[in-house]
């Protein structure tokens, strides 16, 4: 660890702002948006809050791994979004390739679309996690002594994965439409408005994983090692634990979460080569707001950014502005947070 120099200076704004301020200010902003562009209660729930939670679930799946990996090994994996994209492409391929009605289907086919979907999720997650482990062992590990090159390398991987996906003949550069399993293809009625079942599934998936990983981190022995490694990996090593192996495990776990997010997103937004960077962008904003290295920070950041997206979409639509501005506006949220509290809401590891 490098020691930071100590200088005398006046207190800065962000030291006075308490961690609760940012969620509170964001909530206030949401209320302000509702005052500017009113929405009825059913519209508010099914048109803004639930879609916001859906996005939050996807952002969380990327951000959690990003944050955990950084917290444990000080590696910011710029290719994390690429693992999301790879997961999505694999799941999409399973959905298409196993379909007996698809012209270029694989030798083995399964008639049940729900089974295909589950297989896609599993294969996507496992291959994504495996890919993460391979990347860590082969590419990241030789560079632990040169952290700057780790960053340069992972950015290069973004480019490699992007080109790789485009060069697979079955995938190509154009976007593919989402394929939903029959069980989740319909919609439910909530407060008198239809809401897609698949979005609910994503929310449940995100929540379940958030709880499961939290339990893994807080209750299991492995989780204890990981948390200890985040605190002080040298100390953990001195206690006789192979930290390198834990590193690989966490990298695979993070990669698997991102790939699962991608595999689930493939049936929601479809697949296209830019999806990795696009979602990683929001994951970055999430971890900046939540504080890099903090798991709960990633969860809360994802909630805030997911809702901020849908609230600003709502505002922009009501005012008749271009929707691209809504996605740009989330960067504004990040800018404000950075100005107020550069360490993030839960600024861990300072």
């Amino acid at each position: 660890m490098t020691t930071q120099p100590v200088t005398l200076r006046r207190r800065r704004l962000h030291e006075i702002v308490s961690p609760l301020t940012i969620p509170l200010v964001t909530l206030l902003l949401f209320v302000l948006i509702l005052l500017l562009a009113p929405a009825s209660l059913p519209k508010l729930v099914t048109g803004i809050i639930l879609p916001g939670l859906t996005l939050a679930a996807l952002y969380f799946l990327i951000a959690a791994g990003l944050s955990l990996i950084f917290g444990l090994m000080d590696v910011l994996n710029f290719a994390h979004g690429s693992l999301f994209m790879v997961g999505a492409y694999i799941a999409w391929s399973c959905n298409v390739g196993l379909d007996p009605l698809y012209p270029n289907h694989w030798p083995v086919t399964i008639a049940n679309s729900n089974a295909r979907f589950v297989i896609g999720l599993l294969v996507g997650t496992l291959l994504g996690a495996g890919l993460g482990a391979v990347v860590e062992v082969l590419l990241i590990r030789p560079l632990y002594k040169r952290p700057i090159y780790q960053v340069l390398l992972t950015l290069g991987l973004v480019f490699v994965f992007d080109a790789l996906v485009r060069s697979v003949p079955a995938w190509g550069s154009d976007s593919k439409a989402p394929i939903k399993p029959s069980l989740l293809a319909g919609s439910l009625e909530i407060l008198g408005r239809r809401f897609p079942t698949y979005s609910l599934f994503l929310i449940v998936l995100g929540l379940t994983l958030a709880v499961a990983v939290a339990l893994l981190l807080r209750r299991s022995r492995i989780g204890m090692t990981i948390r200890a490694g985040v605190q002080d990996s040298t100390m953990v090593e001195a206690l006789g634990i192979n930290v390198r192996r834990v590193f690989t495990g966490v990298f695979a776990l993070g990669a698997g979460l991102a790939a699962l997010g991608g595999a689930a997103a493939a049936s929601f937004i479809g697949v296209y080569p830019e999806m990795g960077l696009e979602y990683q962008l929001f994951a970055f904003i999430v971890v900046v707001i939540g504080g890099l290295g903090s798991y709960s920070g990633a969860a809360i950041g994802a909630l805030l950014i997911g809702l901020a997206r849908t609230f600003s979409d709502h505002l922009v639509l009501e005012l008749g502005l271009p929707t691209a501005i809504a996605s740009a506006s989330t960067v504004l949220v990040m800018a404000v947070v950075l100005l107020l509290k550069p360490g993030g809401v839960f600024g861990a590891k300072e």
Binding site: F70, L76, F78, V151, L155, L277, E278, L281, F284, I285, V288, L292, S327, A328, V331, M334, L338, P342
Partner: peptide, 14 residues
């Protein structure tokens, strides 16, 4: 450090 890289990447992506 990485924070700077991350924010600049996000701004360019926007």
């Amino acid at each position: 450090g990485v924070y700077f890289s991350m924010i600049t990447l996000a701004l360019a992506e926007i």
